[in-house]
């Protein structure tokens, strides 16, 4: 496995399966009375969050604490960062403090890559701009495996919404392909990236047509400000053409599940009745996030600097 987790594309099939299998063992810790393992005692994990994301930051924090790591939350607000300190200087500070791992969330695509050039610690990308969010893809795959009760070879997954600006979509397309699933991206042409021929995914503009044989339908948040930038005419029209409502849920096979990385905009990309249905996995996704992040921290922090574990 690579020393850092920057992109879901860096994971081989073997790496990805190891993370998912390890996460399954980690999940059992959450069911125990003592929800803590001594594994990372004495190691320091820094949560470096330049964007507000209580959900992701808390998930990493719980994961690190369950493994007994010391956790430092270094949020951009109210710190030297908000006083104009550069990412490089922050990195040098964390390096001097002896951080073993830095979990970074940043609005700039590629910020985690830059960070690896300035410090020795293991760097985990917790979402960078419109680039990637690999641990989200891992927890999504974990949730799919759990719900479908099998590996993802041949599974059909539709990812619907603002693909252009979605780091979740970029990571999921790569990881799901690595795991053998077939991905269809569904969006209006304005919200699809240019020159996607090399993406291992099919593209469709028609949600109804895509739903007939899916195992998983993953809805992405669409920010209302996209409307003012003319990516689509109105929220109403977007919702009508690309929102998942009860009628569309009925078009899906009976066992197919509905996923959403959150935060949801009910009534926009997903109807309330769908979000609350038993087919939706939104709460499980949050719970699984902790297990997957425990697995990632454990595997990255217990391999030597050449990326070799003994497992």
């Amino acid at each position: 496995m690579n020393r850092h987790l920057l992109s879901a594309g860096d994971l081989s099939r073997e790496d990805a399966l190891k993370i998912l299998d390890t996460a399954e063992q980690m999940a059992t810790v959450g069911d125990r009375e003592v929800k803590k393992l001594p594994t990372l005692r004495g190691r320091t994990v820094v949560n470096l969050f330049y964007e507000d994301s209580t959900r992701t930051r808390t998930s990493f924090e719980v994961a690190a604490k369950r493994l007994s790591a010391d956790v430092i939350n270094f949020s951009a607000k109210g710190s030297s960062v908000s006083k104009g300190e550069s990412l490089k200087d922050t990195a040098l500070t964390l390096h001097a403090m002896g951080a073993d791992a830095v979990v970074i969330r940043h609005a700039a695509s590629g910020a985690p890559h830059r960070l690896t050039q300035w410090l020795d610690a293991v760097v985990v990308n917790a979402g960078d701009g419109t680039h990637e969010h690999p641990t989200q893809a891992l927890l999504d795959a974990f949730t799919m495996r759990q719900r479908l009760g099998r590996d993802l070879d041949g599974a059909k997954v539709a990812i619907v919404g603002d693909i252009l600006h979605s780091r979740v979509a970029r990571s999921n397309v790569q990881l799901l392909h690595t795991l053998g699933a077939h991905v269809t991206l569904v969006a209006p042409p304005t919200l699809l990236p240019r020159d996607m021929q090399t993406w291992p995914a099919q593209v469709s503009y028609d949600l109804d047509a895509a739903l007939g044989d899916v195992d998983v339908c993953m809805m992405l948040r669409v920010q209302a400000e996209r409307m003012t930038a003319s990516y689509f005419p109105t929220v109403r029209e977007y919702s009508r053409r690309y929102g998942l409502d009860g009628r569309r849920l009925a078009l899906m096979p009976k066992e197919a599940i509905v996923m959403h990385p959150g935060p949801m905009v009910r009534g926009m990309e997903i109807a309330g009745e769908v979000a609350d249905s038993s087919r939706a996995t939104i709460v499980e996704q949050v719970r699984n996030g902790v297990s997957v992040r425990m697995a990632v921290l454990y595997l990255l922090l217990t391999q030597d600097s050449t990326g070799q574990g003994t497992a």
């Binding site: 695509s109 590629g110 960078d128 701009g129 419109t130 680039h131 990637e132 780091r167 970029r170 990236p193 240019r194 020159d195 996607m196 021929q197 090399t198 993406w199």
Partner: peptide, 10 residues
């Protein structure tokens, strides 16, 4: 704007 920007999210 092209294949690389789409992949890199820039």
């Amino acid at each position: 704007e092209g294949e690389v920007s789409s992949q890199l999210g820039l």
